[in-house]
Design a protein around this nucleic acid. Sequence first.
DNA 1: TGATTTTTTGTATGTTGAATACAATTTACT
DNA 2: AGTAAATTGTATTCAACATACAAAAAATCA
Lengths: 242, 242
Amino acid sequence: MDTPRKRGRPRKLRPVEGHGTERLSRAGLHEQAGRQLREMIVTGALAPGAPIVEADLCALLGISRTPLREAVKMLAAQGLVELRPNRSARIAPFDASHITELFEALSNVERIAAEYAAQRLSARELAHLRDLQETMEAHYRAGDLAAYFAINQAIHSAILAGAHNATLVEMHGWLFARAERARYFALGAHARWAESIEEHRAILAALEQRQSDTAGRLLAAHVMHTGTGVLARLAATAGAAA
Amino acid sequence: MDTPRKRGRPRKLRPVEGHGTERLSRAGLHEQAGRQLREMIVTGALAPGAPIVEADLCALLGISRTPLREAVKMLAAQGLVELRPNRSARIAPFDASHITELFEALSNVERIAAEYAAQRLSARELAHLRDLQETMEAHYRAGDLAAYFAINQAIHSAILAGAHNATLVEMHGWLFARAERARYFALGAHARWAESIEEHRAILAALEQRQSDTAGRLLAAHVMHTGTGVLARLAATAGAAA
DNA sequence: TGATTTTTTGTATGTTGAATACAATTTACT
DNA sequence: AGTAAATTGTATTCAACATACAAAAAATCA
């Protein structure tokens, strides 16, 4: 059989390649490693304060040190890893005071976003938010925790996006990974379903009525509630990690 | 011309360079490279949108590609560099809309900090702020721009520190590099000396009286003023870079 | 049909991606 | 302490990918 060889220039069209695996191989090893490491840090598979031995992680991820180090440097810039000259890097420590700080910052970033969003949300974006709220309540009634959670996150993202400020979105993403880590720490800190739904409804109402101060205040309070919830659960679970 | 062969580790980084400089050499090449690159980006020596050719920068900084790449990855995570898979990374683009976004975010971060600071500043910290204000006014009267500028920055840092929230400080630093870049872009955007002094005085007064809302509002407005100043200067200077 | 433009194909070159090798430093052990 | 092992820091090497350029083929027009 004849081989239709395509040496030299790849075709301009990139037609039939839309399968998920493409993305991964195209992404670059340090990018993949970064994602996997973040996942491991967030879920607690890599405990706070734990030293990062490069060789070990290389073996675990099946890559060499170079891309791993690049990934570690990125995570360090994102505050998930702590770099120490000539020593092993460490997973960023995480205790109650960190969590307090984190949620203070996060709640206020979301407050800002809500304030802008109340002024800037388009009709379409508002409709989308209403849609998300309905879906979330449906999942709540159905008792589908995972789906509820996903939608909950989507709502926060939608509000952030509604501020129409990419820098704000970046900042939020920067904090969000750590917040997720906190949530994993305080496992099952979601007995607040009902209240959370109510709070979301109030926030949506404020956004619809373009009351930026109210929307901001409510959203900040909402985030702080989850923060204190996490803290309470953490204290209850007993010994915090260092 | 031709570079002399450097195999292994050509550079003896441990010559007797005095006692203070030891610290710096110990910092690691990627750290140093990161600092130098940031400086170059902020001051505009590396123009927005310019491609980063690794080999060139290596030659310029006198290091090999490995630490340079690590530095680039960190800067990318900080938003100063844009990574493109399998292509040359670029200095993050920077136009008027970016500046608008940036100062929106920055002013609100400082607002948050001021709100907390008004509640949390210790007597000693307040005294320090008063001190800084006096010094700044002295430099202003003496017409010493550089010194004025340094103190101005110190005041903002002191307010941030007064919020007693390291995460907030981190976020601020994250935005601040970009803000400095914007200021360098709009060169000489400081005809606002007199107003700026007055605004600072009002902010300090609000902090002393523990009026958190007022302090936050004033500081946010102050930052936004410098932002619009930068924008105006940029528009006046003519074509913005892409 | 012949000339010219456009499109496609082939090759070369430069740049990034990843792995390995080696030096230097820190840590563990005695 | 002093020495050995482990671990990080940096340089170099090789491979993969993308782009630029040049040549050839095809299509268009006089």
